[in-house]
Amino acid sequence: METLWFVIVAFLLTAYVVLDGFDLGAGAVHFLIGKTERERRATFQAIGPVWDGNEVWLVVAGGVLFCAFPRLYASSFGGFYLPLMIVLWLLILRGVGVESRSQFINPVWRTFFDFVFSAASILLAVFFGAALGNVIRGVPLNSDGYFFEPLWTNFRTTGQVGILDWYTVLTGALALLVLSMHGGLWMALKTDGEINTRARKIAIRLWGPVVALTGISLAATIYVRPQALDNFRLYRWGWLIPIVVVLSLLGIFIYSRKGSDLRAFLASSVYITGMLAGAAFAFYPYVLPSSTDPGLGLTISNTAAGAYGLKVGLVWWTIGIVLALGYFTFVYRHFAGKVTLEGEEH
């Protein structure tokens, strides 16, 4: 039952990264894709109807975490207090940027809020990558299962660790590149003409660095956390995941060169899913490893809620996810197709 909930939480977080990832990515490459005021509208036509719903997957993941693994929620939200608050502010600023930009027909106003939107998107991508890096590297848990990390200490991954050290900055950079590429592929999918060409070119240009950093961060992960390979030795079917990652990377390159935008975007989604699934697979059953003493790490067994709660929660979650997926399919079907620059302002 705990394993099932582990998979559910991993699924929800992956869904969030794939979905809000393209919003953040579109924001990150916003100024590179849209050179004029008219062209910049394309970004908001493309993500306008869906960005809010995409962000909700993060709320769902947090809520499910609270329900299924309350001790993990308690420990990590206290320990990651500072970056979580900063992420909150960035999410607010990103949303304000999207919704306020078209309130006044004034170039200074629009450019200012475009900048807020883009900067917040870039920083969010970095922070989310760093957050994952923190979880993989481990945190200084005490015997009660609590910790607190300052924003940075000495940038080393051992001893007194901070939120930012060389490893988490690396994962943050990888996240930024991956999400920018992902966002670029979404923009290519949703636009045509000049903007489509530009978005695709950006995505292709980012592909090389993404591949390079994927390899480097994989090596760094094994260096920082040698236990990551244990599950791969135990369960041989886990090797499917890196194979999927490599294939999806190839897919991104081939499809975007050919101009099959939908396939390229789907390949990118598969890549992100593969990377996150690999991470979840690698550190199962740990949910938050300890950087000091391995015995103090939080696992699914010592953080899960009671069996009755997990069972009841599963019933409600199933009902909820069916509703959510139904509505999700409806919205994306309704807004499918290319966006036009002449359409109504979002």
């Binding site: 308690a74 939200f77 206290g78 320990g79 207090y81 500072l82 609590y146 910790f147 607190f148």
Partner: peptide, 8 residues
Amino acid sequence: SHMVSSGN
């Protein structure tokens, strides 16, 4: 949260 100091 005991670990979060008042300064934070």
